[in-house]
Design a protein around this nucleic acid. Structure first.
Lengths: 133, 133
DNA sequence: CGTCCCTCTTACGTTAACGTAAAGCAGTAC
DNA sequence: GTACTGCTTTACGTTAACGTAAGAGGGACG
């Protein structure tokens, strides 16, 4: 309880990010550390938000999308409507990700097919060279 | 045979790219259209290369990687070593793509899990919101 | 007192793959 | 002749998420 506030370095060590990243997130209004003189001190709230930010990034949300989602939480007056909107955004993201995965799978299959031929060509060629000796 | 050469617009229409893109590819030495006065005329070779470029992009190769592959291809089948190197690059790319797909699948599973608990996630959000304040 | 060490602000740099605007020539239609 | 189209070159702009360097303030240590 005594250490409720973290310095920028402690935050970096705790969440494996750089100082630049934290300052950048602050500039983008994703975090709101308090000040002690010039120095930033990150609160429990900042830590919770950073966790959500990093999770959001794993899901492929952009920082701007994440900010909007965090803002929605914070506003929280018409909870139901806004949570539904949050929900929809997340579902859309899921769809996008699945689409992306499907495209990737197609490309993988195609490339595999190419490599099947490629291997044959390379092998043929190497055999020819052997034979030519 | 009479229409062996395409203008830039014909190329654009045929392959669904912009003039800027074709000029850009030329500047990056991916294409080598001939000139009739000032105007570019794209040969059969350019069309073949463009097809490979677009396919390469689908596979997630960067333009620079594509250029190197095309160069190796052009150098001819002089040396099996080069074919082998081309082959290896492609195989590496396949590995990368499969890795990327796996990560994507993990994220998809995670996100799906979050969404699955419809009511629960709402509670989570509200809790995190509290914490975030 | 000097020298680290951490932090701060400011602000330009990075990367890929083009987009877009400005200004001009060439040929063709009217 | 002039308007219109299509092509050209040159060159700055765009986007995301920070990286990185410069210069300075302040506290702690020895």
């Amino acid at each position: 309880m005594s250490e409720d506030l973290l310095t920028i370095r402690e935050m970096c060590d705790a969440y494996d990010v750089t100082p630049r990243t934290l300052r950048f997130y602050e500039s983008k209004e994703l975090l709101f550390p308090i000040r002690e003189g010039q120095k930033r001190l990150f609160t429990k709230r900042d830590r919770a938000r950073l966790k959500l930010i990093l999770r959001g990034k794993r899901f492929g949300f952009s920082l701007e999308e994440i900010r909007q989602l965090l803002d929605l939480y914070d506003m929280g007056d018409q909870q139901a409507t806004q949570l539904r909107r949050t929900f929809n955004v997340a579902q859309q993201r899921l769809k996008d990700m699945e689409e992306q995965r499907d495209e990737l799978n197609e490309a993988i299959d195609d490339l595999r097919e190419q490599l099947k031929w490629g291997e044959k060509i390379v092998a043929d060629f190497e055999n020819e060279q052997k034979a030519a000796q």
